[in-house]
Amino acid sequence: EKIKSDFFELLSNHHLDSQSRWSKVKDKVESDPRYKAVDSSSMREDLFKQYIEKIAKNLDSE
């Protein structure tokens, strides 16, 4: 859970929106230790998708 929250924090530093693509974001964040803390690339992508869904819901509710 800490790894997930750290990863979300990392993503939040990059001002993403619901149109952001993992392939582009990954290049910007892959040197960060919070990125490396997530064991697998599929898990990183899953967390990215969860984060994008979360910010999309937040935008819808505003």
Rank of each mutant, 00 (worst) to 15 (best):
E1F: 10
E1N: 15
E1C: 10
E1T: 05
E1L: 08
E1Y: 15
K2W: 02
K2N: 12
K2G: 06
I3E: 08
I3G: 04
I3M: 09
I3W: 02
I3P: 03
K4W: 02
K4H: 06
K4C: 09
K4I: 12
S5T: 14
S5P: 02
S5Y: 09
S5E: 10
S5N: 14
S5L: 13
D6E: 09
D6H: 04
D6Q: 06
D6F: 00
D6M: 04
D6S: 04
D6P: 00
D6K: 04
F7N: 01
F7K: 01
F7Q: 02
F8L: 07
F8I: 08
F8C: 02
E9R: 06
E9Y: 03
E9F: 02
E9K: 10
L10F: 01
L10C: 06
L10P: 00
L10Y: 01
L11E: 01
L11A: 01
L11V: 01
L11S: 00
L11K: 00
L11R: 00
S12I: 02
S12K: 15
S12M: 09
S12N: 15
N13E: 12
N13C: 12
N13P: 04
N13Y: 06
H14E: 09
H14P: 00
H14L: 14
H14M: 15
H14N: 07
H14A: 09
H15W: 05
H15R: 13
H15A: 10
L16W: 04
L16S: 03
L16Y: 05
L16D: 02
L16T: 08
L16M: 10
D17C: 06
D17N: 12
D17T: 13
D17M: 02
D17W: 02
D17K: 03
D17V: 03
S18H: 12
S18K: 13
S18M: 13
S18G: 12
Q19N: 15
Q19I: 07
Q19L: 08
Q19D: 13
S20P: 04
S20M: 07
S20F: 03
S20Q: 05
S20G: 04
S20L: 04
R21F: 04
R21L: 11
R21N: 13
R21V: 12
R21Y: 07
W22N: 02
W22T: 01
W22D: 02
W22Q: 01
S23V: 14
S23P: 10
K24C: 15
K24W: 09
K24H: 08
K24D: 15
K24T: 13
K24N: 14
K24Y: 13
V25L: 13
V25C: 05
V25Q: 03
V25M: 06
V25H: 05
V25G: 03
V25P: 01
V25F: 15
V25Y: 06
K26I: 09
K26E: 06
K26Q: 12
K26D: 03
K26M: 07
K26A: 07
K26F: 03
D27I: 15
D27L: 12
D27Y: 15
D27H: 12
K28H: 15
K28Y: 09
K28P: 01
K28R: 09
K28A: 10
V29S: 02
V29H: 00
V29Y: 08
V29R: 00
E30I: 05
E30Y: 06
E30W: 08
E30H: 08
E30C: 15
E30V: 08
E30M: 12
E30D: 14
E30F: 05
S31Q: 13
S31P: 06
S31E: 10
D32P: 00
D32M: 00
D32Q: 00
D32W: 00
P33E: 08
P33K: 12
P33V: 08
P33A: 10
P33Y: 07
P33T: 06
P33D: 09
R34E: 01
R34N: 02
R34W: 00
R34S: 02
R34A: 07
Y35G: 05
Y35I: 02
Y35M: 03
Y35L: 01
Y35D: 01
Y35F: 15
Y35E: 01
K36P: 00
K36N: 08
K36T: 11
A37T: 03
A37E: 03
A37I: 06
A37P: 00
A37W: 00
D39H: 09
D39R: 14
D39K: 13
D39M: 10
D39N: 14
S40K: 08
S40C: 13
S40I: 03
S40N: 13
S40H: 05
S40M: 04
S41W: 05
S41A: 15
S41H: 14
S41N: 14
S41V: 10
S42I: 11
S42N: 14
S42F: 07
M43V: 11
M43D: 08
M43T: 14
M43R: 09
M43C: 10
M43G: 06
R44H: 04
R44D: 01
R44Q: 04
R44K: 05
R44L: 03
R44E: 02
E45T: 04
E45R: 07
E45F: 07
D46N: 12
D46A: 13
D46K: 12
D46G: 07
D46L: 12
D46F: 12
L47S: 01
L47M: 08
L47G: 01
L47E: 02
F48P: 03
F48V: 09
F48D: 03
F48T: 03
F48M: 04
K49C: 09
K49P: 00
K49T: 10
K49V: 10
Q50S: 10
Q50P: 01
Q50C: 09
Q50E: 15
Y51P: 03
Y51S: 03
Y51G: 02
Y51C: 01
I52S: 06
I52L: 14
I52Y: 07
I52V: 13
E53K: 13
E53V: 09
E53P: 03
K54N: 14
K54I: 11
K54P: 03
K54L: 11
I55T: 10
I55V: 12
I55N: 12
I55W: 06
I55F: 14
A56C: 11
A56S: 14
A56Y: 08
A56L: 07
A56F: 10
K57H: 07
K57V: 10
K57R: 11
K57P: 13
N58L: 06
N58W: 03
L59A: 11
L59V: 15
L59T: 15
L59K: 13
D60W: 04
D60Q: 10
D60I: 06
D60F: 08
D60H: 12
S61I: 11
S61G: 15
S61Q: 13
S61C: 11
S61T: 09
S61K: 11
S61W: 06
E62L: 06
